[in-house]
């Protein structure tokens, strides 16, 4: 069964057309990640799905029913916000149980669900505390717990980890992955973070300017980007783009080469001087000036002694390159 289906969805704020003809299906139990540059409409799409904004046109179907005119609380969704949005005057337990009280669930059921969620998220020691007395990571776990207790058909996460530091982000990411396996609920997750997108997603939706650019599994998008935008957006460091004329191609076309598929040393198709070297321990990023506007990045696995200013030959496998036409569509 499908958990969510969007058909020809449009959203405008007055004259500003933010979402354009979105068609999207989320299957039951699927983990879908929305990525895209800032301002492309990810949050707006999530808010339209949640019912916090009305769709200008198009149909939103959650489970079996069309929910265009259903208030947020009755859509069978739960949402986790970037800013946590906990109720400041309620303690952790009350924060998690408020929605259930609002639904007039029996008391025993509320207690059981809160206990279950608090066990899952290790919140037991904090149940009596106010949000002000919790750390950022704990607050975000409470916000996740508040979503879990509702047992929604669909979880919506809007950049839930972006306020956390790197270590905590990794922990919470693992926790969300674990939660997804345990709950078997469908989840939609908005993020800026490549790693989150690649590691969590069953399916990634790349958005640009309110349009869906490509939908597919993480490896699908990485190996088979439909256009230059998707190719450059996924992968870190991002793909090198070189005018095709440099490699014997036709005018206007471009060739994309991922930094990890380039090797240094043997006589290659391209050459240039090293501008800067980033030593990351596990890998080394070499940034090379090949005479184009954008610098060329090479990712080497392991540690290498390369001096800035050195002249290097860049070799790569022709089969591992991507060709795009002038408009950015993939040719091969």
């Amino acid at each position: 069964m499908t958990a969510l289906q969007l058909t020809d969805l449009n959203k405008s704020f007055g004259a500003v057309h933010v979402l354009k003809d979105i068609n999207l299906t989320v299957e039951e139990g699927e983990f879908v990640v929305f990525v895209g540059p800032s301002g492309c409409g990810k949050s707006t799409l999530l808010r339209v799905i949640a019912g916090l904004e009305d769709a200008t046109s198009g149909e939103i179907r959650i489970g079996a029913s069309v929910v265009n005119d259903t208030p947020p609380a009755k859509r069978g969704i739960a949402m986790v916000f970037q800013s946590y949005a906990l109720y400041p005057h309620l303690n952790v337990c009350e924060n998690m149980s408020l929605a259930l009280k609002q639904e007039k669930q029996p008391k025993a059921e509320i207690e059981a669900r809160v206990a279950e969620a608090s066990r899952m998220l290790s919140l037991d020691p904090y149940l009596d505390r106010r949000p002000a007395e919790l750390s950022g990571g704990q607050r975000q776990r409470v916000a996740i717990g508040r979503a879990v207790v509702r047992q929604p058909q669909l979880f919506l996460f809007d950049e839930p980890l972006s306020n956390l530091d790197a270590a905590l982000r990794m922990n919470t990411r693992l926790e969300i992955a674990k939660l997804h396996r345990q709950l078997e609920g469908s989840m939609i997750y908005v993020t800026h973070d490549q790693t989150e997108a690649m590691t969590l997603a069953d399916k990634i939706v790349v958005l640009r300017d309110g349009r869906v650019e490509q939908v597919g599994s993480p490896m699908d998008l990485y190996n088979n980007p439909a256009n230059r935008f998707v190719a450059e957006f996924l992968g870190s460091p991002s793909m090198n783009i070189v005018p095709a004329t440099r490699l014997g191609g036709s005018d206007g076309e471009q060739v994309g080469i991922r930094p990890e598929y380039v090797h240094i040393g043997d006589a290659g198709a391209l050459a240039g001087s090293v501008i800067h070297v980033e030593h990351l321990g596990g890998d080394t990023n070499v940034i090379v000036d090949i005479g184009e506007e954008a610098p060329f990045t090479v990712r080497l696995f392991g540690q290498f002694d390369i001096e800035a200013g050195a002249t290097v030959q860049l070799g790569f496998d022709e089969a591992k390159t991507y060709r795009f036409d002038a408009a950015g569509s993939r040719l091969s």
Partner: peptide
């Protein structure tokens, strides 16, 4: 007052009056 907080209330099924009196006024 945080937009997210009011929206969290809406998703949890609070009425606009409850959001006004219980969430916004105290803040």
């Amino acid at each position: 007052v945080s937009e997210d907080l009011k929206n969290a209330g809406r998703i949890d099924g609070l009425s606009e009056y409850t959001i006004f009196f219980r969430l916004v006024l105290p803040l």
